[in-house]
Amino acid sequence: MSTTEPIATDAPTDHDREALRELPPSAKLVAKALEYNDQLTQSQLAEETLLPGRTVRYALNRLEEIGVVDARFSFTDARKRVYSLQTE
């Protein structure tokens, strides 16, 4: 591995951090929970952050708008979506 290659990480980049500053505290908390946990569903995020499900949904929408969060369908339950921080 070359020392000039960037190391892939799930941590937000400087650009992401700048965009996060403009978001409400709930979105920042959800982003931080996803930083510590690789992938979580909306209900798991609500449990992890102690936020109401509706607030988590709003936070996820805001994070998706700025391109910080990826969402995909769960393999175990197609009715649920799994969220993770977007990787570069």
Rank of each mutant, 00 (worst) to 15 (best):
V68N: 01
E35V: 03
L45W: 05
T13G: 11
H15E: 15
A11H: 08
F75P: 02
R81V: 01
T55K: 13
A71N: 08
D70A: 11
A46M: 06
R21Y: 04
L63D: 04
D38F: 10
T87V: 14
F73G: 02
N37F: 12
Q39W: 04
A27R: 04
H15T: 11
R62Y: 07
F73C: 01
L23E: 08
D14V: 10
L23G: 02
S84P: 00
E18T: 12
T3C: 01
Q39L: 11
P52C: 00
R54C: 00
E65M: 03
L63V: 02
V30C: 05
R57P: 00
L45F: 06
D10Y: 04
A19I: 06
S43I: 10
E22T: 05
R72I: 01
R79Y: 09
L50F: 00
Y58G: 00
H15R: 12
D16K: 02
D16Y: 03
A71P: 01
D70R: 13
E35W: 03
S74E: 09
T41P: 02
E48G: 00
A78G: 07
L40D: 02
T4V: 13
A71W: 03
N37R: 15
K80S: 05
G67I: 02
D10Q: 10
T55N: 07
E18H: 11
A31M: 09
D38N: 07
V68W: 05
A8N: 02
E88P: 08
S84Y: 00
T3N: 12
R81E: 06
E35P: 00
M1H: 11
T13N: 07
Y36E: 12
A46V: 05
L63T: 02
Y83F: 15
R54K: 12
L34I: 06
P25A: 15
L60I: 15
E5A: 15
V56Q: 08
L51N: 10
K32M: 14
S84R: 15
T76W: 10
E22C: 00
D16C: 06
R54I: 03
L23A: 08
F75A: 08
R72Q: 13
P52R: 07
S84H: 01
V82A: 04
T3H: 10
D14I: 08
Q86L: 09
R54A: 10
T49Y: 04
M1T: 09
Q86P: 00
Y58C: 01
V56C: 04
T55Q: 14
N37S: 14
E88Q: 10
V82T: 08
D38A: 14
K32Q: 14
T76I: 09
E88W: 03
V68S: 03
P25Y: 08
